[in-house]
Amino acid sequence: MPGMTAQPEITQRDLRNRSREIMDAVQGGQSFTVTRDGHEIGELIPLRRRRRFVPRGEFVTMSRTASGFSVDALRADQRDTAEQETDDPYAR
């Protein structure tokens, strides 16, 4: 695709033989395109890390544009869910 940075290509054999080195690079943020018999078969990419917290300023900004919240609607949903019977085949 135009405008995308090329990822280094590694063969299936390289992945097998140099797995520790390659996984260390992935952990460090590097991505790879994996090939087999000269054909691209997949990408090895690092997982995105989830943030553990949201800064206060960002939370305030998000809260201002959030849709309304109805405590009554939440309680009605909880009540309706709690009143449902389970289809437990082992219940007597």
Rank of each mutant, 00 (worst) to 15 (best):
N17T: 08
I41H: 14
G3C: 01
M1S: 10
E85W: 08
D77Y: 02
D77P: 00
R79M: 08
R13W: 03
D88Y: 05
F32D: 00
M23K: 02
D77T: 02
D88C: 04
N17Y: 05
E9T: 11
G42Y: 07
Q12M: 04
Q12Y: 07
P46N: 14
R64T: 07
D72W: 04
V34W: 11
E21Q: 14
P8E: 07
V60K: 15
R79K: 05
E9C: 04
P55S: 05
H39F: 04
V60W: 07
Q84G: 03
M4W: 04
G28H: 05
V71S: 13
A76Q: 09
F53W: 09
D24T: 12
D80V: 01
Q30Y: 05
A82H: 10
R49T: 10
Q27K: 10
Q84K: 14
D88E: 06
A66W: 04
H39R: 13
E43S: 07
E58N: 05
L74N: 12
T33P: 00
G68K: 10
V26A: 14
R75A: 12
R49W: 06
A6C: 11
D77H: 02
T65F: 10
R75K: 08
S19T: 03
T33S: 02
I45D: 00
D37K: 01
I45W: 00
I10Y: 06
T61H: 09
N17C: 06
G38E: 02
R48C: 07
E21G: 07
E83G: 04
D24S: 14
I41F: 13
D72G: 15
A76Y: 01
R16W: 12
R49Q: 15
S67V: 03
S70W: 13
E9D: 06
S19I: 03
V54M: 09
P46C: 11
G42E: 04
T5R: 10
R36E: 06
V60D: 05
L44T: 00
A76K: 09
Y90L: 09
L15D: 03
D14F: 07
D80S: 05
R36D: 15
T86K: 12
T81H: 06
E85R: 13
T35G: 00
L74F: 06
R51V: 09
N17P: 01
M62E: 09
T5V: 08
R20I: 10
L47H: 07
P8W: 02
A73R: 12
R50N: 11
R16Y: 15
Q84D: 01
S67N: 08
S31I: 01
V34Y: 12
A76I: 08
A82L: 09
E43Y: 10
D14T: 11
A82P: 01
G3N: 11
P8R: 15
R20L: 05
D87N: 06
Q84S: 03
R75F: 11
F69H: 15
D72F: 07
I41V: 13
E21W: 15
M4L: 13
D24Q: 15
R56H: 13
R48F: 12
A82F: 07
D88P: 03
S63P: 01
Y90N: 15
S63L: 15
H39I: 08
T11D: 08
S31C: 02
F32A: 00
T81E: 09
G3A: 04
T86C: 01
L44S: 00
N17K: 02
R36V: 14
P8D: 10
V60Y: 15
V54R: 13
T33K: 00
T81M: 12
R92C: 06
E43G: 10
V54P: 02
